[in-house]
Design a protein around this nucleic acid. Structure first.
Lengths: 210, 210
DNA sequence: ACGTGTGAATTAGTTCACAGCT
DNA sequence: AGCTGTGAACTAATTCACACGT
C-alpha cells in the first residue's frame, strides 16, 4: 500500500476507465475479475493495472482476483463519485442541447442543475427539464447553490470570457468544449473535449492514398 | 532533424494542440512566435515544443522563432489535414444532431458526408443539410465513397455492433462517443470521447466538503 | 543578444519477475 | 495452482544547457 505518496496524474486518468469497464462487467452480472481480464478488455497490461490500484490499497485477493462490486465501490470513493456533483452548463446551442439531454451523467456521479446562455431569444425557453437562464445569473446561482463544476459549450470567441466568469463565481472545475486553450488561475481544474483534436491524431497514422 | 525515427504517440497527440493554438494566433494577425510564447499559452515547456517539432524538421530560425503561417502549413502536412477527410456519422440522437450541425470540422480538415441511424422513425428525416439514412446502407456507402473515418454516437448497447459494421465496411478510424471500450482489430484506429471520464478525473482532485 | 535544435542528464512511467497469500 | 502486490530493472519522456545560426 502506498497511501501517502503522490499519485501520478496519468494513474488518475486511468481510474475512470477502469471504473467504467468494471461497471460494464457488473451489468453483465459478473462478480469477480482479474487484472489479466480487465487488462485484456482495455488493452492495458495487467501489471499496470495492479500497480495503479496499489497506490490506493490492496483491493484484490491473491489467487482470487478482485471482487467487482467492491472494486467499483473503492474506485468511486477514490474518484469522489460515491456522491453526486451538481454542475452548470453554459451555452445552449446544439451541443448544449445534447448535453442537457444526456442521460449518462447521473449514473457516473454528476447532475446538471442549470443551463445558461446570453441569447435573449433563448433565455426562458425550456431545454430538457430546465429553463435557459441568463448567463448574468451565473455568479449568484453558483454561490447560492455551491456549484463547483461548469461545462462550457459556447463558441470559441466567448469561451475565455465565460471561463473568467465561472472562475470569478467560484467554480473549481471546468469541462470546456470550446476549441481554445483557456487561461485559468492555478487551483481551478480544466479539461477539454475537442473532436477535431482526436481526428487529427488519427489522420497522422492514416494513408490517404488508399 | 529526425525524420526516420519513430515518433512517440504522445508527441503526435500534442501536434494538433500546437496547430490549434497557432491558428488562433494567426487569426489574431500574428506572424511570428517562439517556443517560449507558444509554451506559455499552452502550459507546455518551450523545450518540449522544440523537441516535438524537431522530430519532423527544422521549422524555426535561431534568434527569430517560428513563422506562424509556415508552421501551420507544416503541421497540417504532418497531420495530413492539408486536405479534407470525408466522415460518416452513425447515430442521429441529440449528440448526433449536435455533431451534424457542428461548424468546427471543416476548418480543421474534416467533412461530414452522411448520417445513419437504425430508427425507422428517423430514417428519411433531414438533419442539417443531410437526410438520415438507414444504418444498413453503411457498407455500400463506405465502399462507394471510399470513406475512412466514422463517428459513432449511438447508445453503449449498440456501439460494438456498429463498430463491427464500420470495420467490416472498411472504415480505418473511429471516433466513438459511446462510454464503452470497443473491441477493434489491429490496424483500425479508435479514439474515445466521454465527458464523464474527464469529470471523474477532476473530482479526484476536488474537495467536496468546501 | 535572441531563440532554435539537440545530445546529455534527469525524471517519470512501465514491465518484469517473484514472494507470499488463498 | 492462481493471482495479487511490489521492489528492481528497464524503457520512455522531459528538461537541461549550450553550440550555433541570425
Amino acid at each position: 500500500m502506498n497511501s501517502v505518496r503522490k499519485v501520478p496524474d496519468i494513474v488518475i486518468g486511468r481510474l475512470p476507465i477502469y471504473l467504467r469497464a468494471l461497471q460494464v462487467m457488473a451489468a453483465e452480472g459478473r462478480e469477480v475479475t482479474s487484472s489479466q481480464e480487465l487488462g485484456e478488455r482495455l488493452g492495458i497490461s495487467p501489471a499496470q493495472i495492479r500497480k495503479d490500484l496499489s497506490y490506493f490499497g490492496n483491493f484484490g485477493k491473491q489467487g482470487m482476483g478482485y471482487r467487482i462490486p467492491d472494486l467499483i465501490h473503492r474506485l468511486k470513493q477514490i474518484l469522489k463519485v460515491d456522491r453526486t456533483w451538481d454542475m452548470i452548463l453554459i451555452g445552449a446551442g446544439n451541443l448544449g442541447h445534447a448535453l442537457a439531454q444526456y442521460q449518462g451523467f447521473t449514473p457516473r456521479g454528476f447532475r446538471l442543475v442549470a443551463i445558461f446562455d446570453n441569447d435573449p431569444e433563448k433565455i426562458g425557453r425550456p431545454i430538457g427539464l430546465h429553463t435557459i437562464r441568463d448567463v448574468g445569473e451565473v455568479p449568484n446561482f453558483v454561490r447560492e447553490h455551491g456549484i463547483q463544476i461548469a461545462m462550457i459549450a459556447v463558441p470559441a470567441s466567448a469561451a475565455q470570457q465565460v471561463a473568467d466568469l465561472c472562475v470569478e463565481a467560484g467554480i473549481r472545475a471546468i469541462l470546456s468544449y470550446a476549441p481554445i486553450h483557456l487561461k485559468i488561475p492555478p487551483g481551478v481544474l480544466v479539461q477539454y473535449i475537442d473532436p477535431a483534436i482526436h481526428l487529427q491524431q488519427m489522420t497522422y497514422y492514416m494513408n490517404h492514398g488508399t
